[in-house]
């Protein structure tokens, strides 16, 4: 399993670099979908089958498709050089490198409370118990949030006329 982790990690990093590196916005969107899929495979390695399925369904099936539709609606003229970098590239690079260095330093030096226990065979049953018993109220509020955001998105995109 060790080589599989490194293979998937390489796919994630290369495709994420493609998301920020491609000059064509559609290529960036495709690289974003590839990143989502590789992260879903990592969830399978981590014994999170349900989260992996939701990642594929929601991120690839909804978010990536929604972004492609957004590109279709917004970018009317040519797609070449549709994802340019601004004047802040150097500053953004420095900030990203420093953030990564600080995070990696903390991760490597902290003594994480790792246990050697194995996860249960059926994590989906444990997930159902968590979501529908312990986190029932947050679950309902998440549904409410989705409803509110859908209504808000429709109102924003329709652009309500002032009387």
């Amino acid at each position: 399993m060790v080589w599989a982790f490194w293979l998937v990690a390489a796919i994630i990093i290369v495709s994420a670099l493609g998301v920020v590196g491609f000059a064509n916005l559609i290529h960036s969107a495709l690289a974003l979908a590839a990143t989502f899929l590789a992260v879903a495979i990592l969830y399978l390695f981590l014994a999170a089958e349900f989260v992996a399925a939701m990642q594929v369904l929601i991120y690839i099936g909804a978010v990536a498709v929604l972004i492609v539709f957004g590109i279709m609606v917004i970018n009317r003229s040519g797609m070449q050089l549709s994802n340019p970098s601004g004047k802040t590239v150097l500053g953004a690079f420095v900030v990203a490198i420093v953030t990564m260095a600080v995070l990696l330093l903390g991760i490597l030096n902290h003594n994480w409370p790792v246990t050697q226990q194995n996860p249960p065979d059926d994590t989906i049953a444990v997930m159902a118990d968590l979501v529908f018993n312990r986190f029932l109220i947050p679950f309902e509020i998440a549904g409410l949030l989705l409803l509110v955001s859908v209504i808000g998105a429709i109102l924003l995109a329709r652009e309500v006329r002032q009387r």
């Binding site: 990093i13 998301v19 920020v20 972004i67 994802n83 340019p84 953004a92 990203a96 990564m100 995070l103």
Partner: peptide
Amino acid sequence: AVLFAIGLFGTLSKRNVIGILMGVEL
């Protein structure tokens, strides 16, 4: 951490607003 840094770079450096959204997703 590496993925977060790449997304942060995309969010801070892109000019197209959809590129910025992609960085947030990362």
